[in-house]
Amino acid sequence: MTERTTPRETPSAPPAFEDLLRTVAEMNTPDGFKAELIRGKIIVSPFSKLRYSRRMRRLREQLQAHVPEGHFADTSPFLFRFPAAERGYGPDLYVADEAAFEEDGQHADGAALSLVGEFTSVSTKDADWNEKLDVYGSLVPVYLVVDMQDSEITCFWDPSPHGYRSRTTVSFGQPLHVPEPFDFTIDTTGF
């Protein structure tokens, strides 16, 4: 008996956003890795390096003292969905409305975010500075990019349909003002 290939029908259109979210939820990613929807694809990348931990913790502690009423700062891995952009991101650090975590399901609404902080790595730097900047820039009030390769931190604020209208960059060790709804200065000494 001769083996013949059996053609399989494949969808002609890319998977729908909700299908991709379901796939991410069902994935059994290896310990130390997270899955995100970037550029319409599921991307699996490692969690931050150990040397990032102190910086993440220091930033989270400073933010926690200034979060808006009903919000909290955390670094726990959760995927936030952005349906209009068909994206889902698991930020390194975030400040979000506690009410978003009362829902059933596995993905929080990106509209619940009041601040996102991404710590760049060689593998994520491009997405942090480009794609995520575009998506966050239309919705999230404050976006912090902690550039671990260039030893700088950038604060973006004043989102609009065309992206953030304002930004400030400082080198590690210099103070960085974070505008409303936080309105305080980050001490980057030791970053």
Rank of each mutant, 00 (worst) to 15 (best):
P11M: 11
P11F: 10
A13G: 05
A16F: 10
M27R: 10
M27A: 14
T29I: 13
I38T: 11
R39A: 15
I42T: 01
S45F: 12
F47R: 13
R51K: 14
R54Y: 08
R55N: 11
M56D: 05
R57N: 13
L59V: 09
H71S: 13
F72E: 07
F72C: 08
T75K: 04
T75C: 07
S76P: 01
P77T: 15
P77L: 11
F80N: 05
R81Y: 09
F82I: 05
P83V: 14
A85G: 06
A85T: 08
E86L: 13
R87T: 12
G88Y: 01
L93W: 00
V95Q: 01
E98H: 10
E98R: 14
E98P: 06
F101D: 03
E102C: 11
D104S: 12
D104Y: 13
D104Q: 10
D104R: 11
A108Q: 05
D109S: 11
G110C: 05
G110V: 03
A111R: 10
A111W: 02
L113F: 01
G117V: 04
E118A: 05
S121L: 04
S121K: 03
V122R: 15
S123N: 10
S123R: 06
S123M: 03
K125S: 08
D126Y: 09
E131Y: 07
D134E: 13
D134G: 09
S138E: 15
L139V: 10
V140K: 00
D147G: 04
M148H: 11
D150I: 04
S151N: 12
S151E: 14
E152A: 10
I153N: 04
T154D: 11
W157V: 07
S160N: 11
P161T: 08
R165V: 08
S166A: 11
R167N: 07
R167M: 10
F172R: 03
L176A: 03
D183M: 12
F184Q: 02
T188D: 02
